[in-house]
Computed example of a mutant assay.
Amino acid sequence: MLRIHFTGVDLARVRMAGRPDALWETILSFHRLRDRRDVRLFGEWRTETRSRLNSETRLLGALIPSRGYFPDFLTPAEGRYGWDVGLDALRGIRAERLRKELALVGGGSALSPRLREFADGGTAMLPRLLRELRGYHRAAVEPYWTHIQAQIEAERAARGRALLDGGADELLASLPPGLRWRAPVLECDYPADRDVHLRGRGLLLQPSFFCRRTAVTLHDPELPPVLVYPAAAEVSHTSAGIEACRPAGSDDQRVRTLGKLVGHTRSVVLRAIGDGATTSELARRAGVSLASASQHACVMREAGLVTTLRRGNAVLHTVTPLGAALLKGGAVAS
């Protein structure tokens, strides 16, 4: 179990990441690619990703074991500002830190020949690592980025509501299963027994699409504290997995469903969602019945314009990047 210990200052410094972290998503997706579980969520994604992979990933495979520790330097704090910024930070890693963290891969046992080569080569090996990361990211993460963004935005909306309703205490208590707030300690299901003391530094909560079952944190206690946790699953009457988010132009059903959206009422309903709305709030804002609001939200969810997450006994609808683009252009108004 992981136990994160808060002080009063830490509670005041809890914050939600403003966007998905491309490096965390890339590294965690590499775990999902080799994992045979969660077929409903990732089955087709695995097939599509493998068919697109035409670059070397052997170094990544050595650095990221199927289980256990992977180097902290793969997910620098700067990554939350964007993919390129994160790669620049990784490019600047110092040789001493690189060797120190490589020594921890595999639980302290002797390094594999590939990792030994990397450790001996030091920072001169970083260009090869960056090439593998870029190639893998293009195949596995980039085609699905819009969907990943939508899921993280929906998660942020749900946690933001909890924060507004009851402050940091309610925010931490509202986190998905596997994370339990027992003030002043946040307990997380974890493969090892570990305590993290924040010591007034606060905590960055980073929801992740590819993080599953257990949260993840950095090994080095001196690095800026971050907790990467599984974003809540989307509520859907069709597909709950990444299969619902094909790269642009590859899903005929998405195109057919979009055709249902033309009309004044759905334009009003989509705009009424705003920064997030429950079904009852949506019905009230749009001036439609509860059943009608639910039906419109369902159609828009199938079309990729809305993401719906369950929060307690209610569901929270948020507009996806596609839905926001349509609203901005007035594409759904009649």
Rank of each mutant, 00 (worst) to 15 (best):
V141A: 09
E142F: 02
P143K: 00
Y144M: 00
Y144R: 03
W145K: 00
T146R: 09
T146S: 10
H147P: 00
H147F: 09
I148V: 15
I148P: 05
A150T: 00
A150M: 00
A150G: 12
A150R: 03
A150V: 00
Q151V: 01
I152G: 01
I152M: 07
E153N: 06
E153K: 00
E153R: 04
E155K: 11
A157P: 03
R159I: 14
R159D: 08
R159S: 09
G160L: 06
R161W: 09
L163S: 10
L163M: 10
L163K: 04
D165V: 05
D165L: 12
G166N: 08
G166W: 01
G167C: 13
A168R: 11
A168W: 01
L171Q: 08
L172K: 13
A173S: 05
A173R: 06
A173K: 08
L175A: 12
L175Y: 04
P176Y: 14
P176M: 05
P176L: 03
P177S: 11
P177M: 02
P177A: 13
P177G: 12
G178N: 09
L179C: 13
L179M: 14
R180I: 02
R180E: 07
R182H: 07
R182C: 04
R182L: 11
A183N: 15
A183G: 07
P184E: 07
P184V: 09
P184L: 14
V185C: 15
V185I: 14
L186D: 02
L186C: 12
L186A: 15
C188R: 03
C188N: 11
C188S: 14
P191I: 02
A192Q: 12
D193E: 05
R194S: 07
R194P: 01
D195G: 14
V196G: 06
V196P: 08
V196D: 00
V196S: 06
H197A: 05
L198I: 15
G200K: 08
R201N: 08
R201Q: 14
R201Y: 13
G202W: 10
G202H: 10
G202L: 04
L203N: 08
L203K: 10
L204R: 15
L204C: 12
L205V: 01
L205F: 15
Q206C: 12
P207Q: 15
P207S: 07
P207A: 11
P207Y: 14
P207E: 06
F209W: 14
F209G: 13
F210I: 04
F210M: 02
F210C: 09
F210T: 07
C211F: 08
C211E: 01
R212T: 04
T214W: 03
T214G: 03
A215M: 08
V216M: 01
V216S: 10
T217M: 03
L218M: 04
L218R: 02
L218C: 09
H219Y: 10
H219P: 00
H219W: 14
D220P: 08
P221T: 07
E222T: 12
E222L: 13
P224V: 05
P224Q: 13
P224D: 05
P225S: 12
P225A: 06
V226T: 11
Y229L: 03
P230N: 07
P230W: 10
A231Y: 05
A232C: 14
A232E: 01
A233I: 09
E234K: 15
V235G: 06
V235S: 00
V235K: 00
S236P: 09
S236G: 04
S236F: 14
H237W: 07
H237V: 11
T238D: 01
S239G: 03
A240F: 08
A240Y: 06
G241K: 04
